[in-house]
Simulated assay, not measured.
Amino acid sequence: MTTDTLLTTPVASARPAPVQARRRKPRAYPVFRVVALTLVVLMFVAPLVWMFIASLKTNVDIYDASKTLLFTPTFDNYANVLSRNNYFSFIFNSFWVALWSTVLSLVLGVPAAYAMSRFTMHRSAMVVLMARIIPGVSLLVPWYFIFANLRLVGGFGVLILSHMFVALPLIVYIMISFFDSMPLELEEQAQVDGLTPIGAFARITLPLSVPGLATAGILSFIFSWNNFMFALVLSGANTKTLPVAIFNFVSYASIDWGSLMAAAVVVTVPIMVIALFTQKYIVSGLTAGATKG
């Protein structure tokens, strides 16, 4: 081959062929995501906004469609709820029952969950979960019969025990998955250093399970605070909780919507504040066992 031929022969490019561009997401996807998120937020926020706005209206303004947004706000509903109906005592009752039902459920549920996790008692865990699935209304009649014969109906003790029926299985189920995600080698090393199995649990495992304890405790407290059915049947005049007290604004002839909405705000705000300040513990505790293995 001559020199002229080499000069006229095209030389193959040393660079590789261009990589095919990645497929771009359709432009409709971001729009659909924004629309979907907006609808979900509106579904959850709109009732809360309407509840707060209605709590600042009179009953006449609530029924007047022309005053949906433009109205003269009043705080008489909150005065009716907090001062005239003595709702501070109902708030204390709800807090007292929720606190002790949560504390006792943690004391009983955490060791039970640890034993079920370490000894792989899956069938026992399923039995505990079944207790959570059973409708509470199916137990109200036998509970009322038993507690009435023991003359316990109307006291704080029976309310705490009934709320533990909801809280205890929830705590056990959350803590089982949390203990499953914790390495067993930590406890074995602690026992090699001289600790007993109970000491290893108390000094090593329990401090490391604080996120799970916080999650279980917060959710248990929220469920107890919002419980209506057990308190409606088993509470008395001096142990009535907030959800039951709200029901007093509903009568056969009419409904005091303004005071009802104000009472609903009083019930909702404390739980919303607790949830906002403790959401990181709830998320970390609920996802503790998701990455196991």
Results as ranks from 00 to 15, higher is better:
Thr9Gln: 15
Ala12Asn: 01
Ser13Ile: 02
Ala14Ile: 04
Ala17Ile: 11
Val19Trp: 03
Gln20Arg: 14
Gln20Ala: 14
Ala21Val: 03
Arg24Ser: 02
Lys25Val: 01
Tyr29Thr: 02
Val31Lys: 01
Thr38Gly: 11
Thr38Ala: 14
Leu39Ile: 09
Leu39Gln: 02
Val40Phe: 14
Phe44Cys: 11
Phe44His: 10
Phe44Ala: 10
Val45Thr: 11
Val45Gly: 06
Ala46Asp: 01
Leu48Gly: 06
Leu48Tyr: 06
Trp50Ser: 09
Trp50Met: 13
Trp50Leu: 13
Met51Ile: 07
Met51Thr: 11
Ala54Thr: 06
Ser55Pro: 03
Lys57Arg: 12
Thr58Leu: 07
Ala65Cys: 00
Lys67Trp: 03
Thr68Tyr: 13
Thr72His: 07
Thr74Asp: 11
Asp76Trp: 01
Val81Phe: 08
Leu82Ile: 13
Ser83Arg: 08
Arg84Cys: 02
Asn85Ile: 00
Phe88Met: 10
Ser89Gly: 05
Phe90Asp: 11
Asn93Cys: 04
Val97Arg: 11
Ala98Asn: 07
Ala98Met: 01
Leu99Lys: 05
Val103Cys: 07
Ser105Asp: 05
Val107Phe: 12
Leu108Glu: 07
Leu108Ile: 06
Gly109Trp: 05
Ala115Val: 15
Ala115Phe: 15
Arg118Cys: 03
Arg123Cys: 00
Arg123Lys: 05
Ser124Phe: 15
Leu129Thr: 04
Ala131Tyr: 06
Ala131Thr: 04
Ile133Cys: 09
Leu139Thr: 08
Phe145Leu: 14
Phe147Tyr: 14
Phe147Glu: 04
Ala148Asp: 10
Asn149Gln: 15
Arg151Ile: 00
Leu152His: 13
Val153Gly: 05
Gly154Asp: 05
Gly155Leu: 01
Phe156Asp: 10
Leu159Lys: 10
Leu159Pro: 03
Ile160Phe: 05
Ile160Glu: 13
Ser162Ile: 00
His163Gly: 03
Met164Asp: 13
Met164Asn: 07
Ala167Cys: 12
Pro169Thr: 01
Leu170Pro: 00
Ile171Arg: 08
Val172Leu: 15
Ile176Leu: 05
Phe178Cys: 11
Phe179Arg: 04
Asp180Ser: 12
Ser181Leu: 04
Leu184Gln: 14
Glu185Val: 05
Glu188Cys: 00
Ala190Glu: 08
Gly194Phe: 10
Leu195Val: 03
Pro197Gln: 06
Phe201Gly: 03
Arg203Tyr: 13
Pro207Gly: 06
Pro207Thr: 02
Leu219Phe: 15
Trp225Glu: 09
Asn227Val: 00
Met229Pro: 01
Phe230Gln: 15
Leu232Ile: 03
Gly236Leu: 03
Ala237Gly: 04
Asn238Gln: 15
Thr239Asp: 09
Leu242Gln: 13
Pro243Cys: 09
Ala245Met: 05
Phe247Asn: 14
Asn248Tyr: 07
Asn248Met: 06
Val250Gln: 13
Ser251Asn: 10
Ala253Glu: 12
Ile255Cys: 01
Gly258Gln: 11
Ser259Cys: 06
Met261Thr: 08
Ala264Ile: 02
Val265Lys: 04
Val265Leu: 08
Val266Lys: 12
Val267Arg: 12
Val267Asp: 09
Met272Tyr: 07
Met272Lys: 06
Ile274Tyr: 14
Phe277Leu: 13
Gln279Gly: 04
Ile282Tyr: 10
Val283Asn: 09
Ser284Glu: 10
Leu286Glu: 08
Leu286Thr: 01
Thr287Tyr: 07
Ala288Pro: 03
Ala290Ile: 14
Thr291Gly: 06
Lys292Asp: 12
Gly293Tyr: 09
